[in-house]
Design a protein around this nucleic acid. Structure first.
Lengths: 187, 187
DNA sequence: CGCGTAATTGAAAAGTATCAACACTGGTGG
DNA sequence: CCACCAGTGTTGATACTTTTCAATTACGCG
């Protein structure tokens, strides 16, 4: 539900004190601000220092579909930089946000020359593949009720921290359905 | 729908002629054979040389959900080896199959010592993250009819090459629904 | 207060699953 | 040669789930 990667975050914070650190900038954003826009060229890789974002796609039907919520240590832009592709999702701050910006060439140099960074990145990607695959299969093969129960057990403060329309977009369902299930869960 | 990675396949075939090649074994499987079992420890990484496999999860409800169909150059087991996790899907041959087996320690050495291999692997992972994310969002936000049309346009020989129950499991729907939509598409 | 956004709800419409019956195919063995 | 069987595919009827639409309420804030 909310992905984090403390190990990578700590490592990048340490990197800031090395020569490479000069090429990494620390930025801020406010709620609603979009750090990365869908269908644009990506020239840098970003890493969240503090705060929460949603990573979502706006579909041709006009709906949004939320891939994930990203917290500290999560990376975005790396897929596009590695595959030379247009960005496939938008990253938007869900509250005050602090994040690092690593220019594309610095990112590629880190991969080449910093085995520890490379290894952390590989594990991040692998972990995200795994997580997304499990989420997708669970989503498709279980009832709405099961899905919501599962979210709640994984993240009990769900409804306090995340807006209903975002939860619905994460589950790929309508708000109406979400409300109905919540109601049946309460009774 | 069917993922392939010719570049990586070519590279691993070349690796076979290096000292590292001795640690890579080439194996065969027949239709229905399972190369990797869900919920087992993984001690090697595999790469498809020739043939087609399905990568699927068996859900607690008894249903299968197919994550992807893998063709030449695609890799499996890498997620588990990189994250030290139990396998989360089963890989099953859909026909005669030839594949390479790379022991865990050889795989990790390749990452450390072969920048080209490392780079190809990073791009493979990135590409798979991207592909899976787009598939998932399309699935969740479009009608069954749209989904099937999309599969057909991407892979016209769909119904000749892949069994109906596999297509249904890939889309996460019942065979009955699949048949109904196919019927409406024909008229 | 007045405004905009988010949340809630009921009723009707659309979509999907379940179940059960039946057709087609390619073996296998009497 | 045919009966039988298992696997795959097809279809209709019914029950269930989810969306759509529209109306209403609740909340935060200038």
């Amino acid at each position: 539900m909310i992905r984090v990667n403390r190990e990578l975050l700590d490592y990048v914070i340490k990197l800031k004190d090395t020569p490479m650190g000069e090429r990494i900038t620390e930025l801020e954003a406010v709620e609603g601000e979009k750090i990365l826009l869908q269908k644009t060229h990506v020239h840098a890789v970003y890493l969240i220092k503090e705060g929460l974002t949603k990573c979502y796609q706006t579909i041709d039907t006009g709906n949004d579909f939320i891939q994930e919520f990203f917290g500290g240590g999560e990376v975005f832009g790396e897929i596009e930089v590695l595959t030379d592709a247009i960005s496939f999702c938008t990253i938007e701050a869900l509250g005050p946000l602090r994040y690092f910006k690593i220019p594309k060439n610095a990112f590629l140099e880190l991969i080449d020359q910093d085995p520890k960074f490379n290894s952390l990145l590989l594990r991040l990607l692998a972990s995200n593949v795994r997580y997304a695959a499990l989420r997708h299969s669970y989503n498709q093969t279980h009832t709405l009720e099961d899905n919501i129960k599962r979210l709640l057990s994984e993240f009990p403060q769900l409804f306090e921290k995340i807006a209903k329309h975002d939860i619905a977009n994460y589950l790929g369902i309508s708000i109406r359905s979400l409300n109905r299930v919540i109601r049946t869960l309460e009774s």
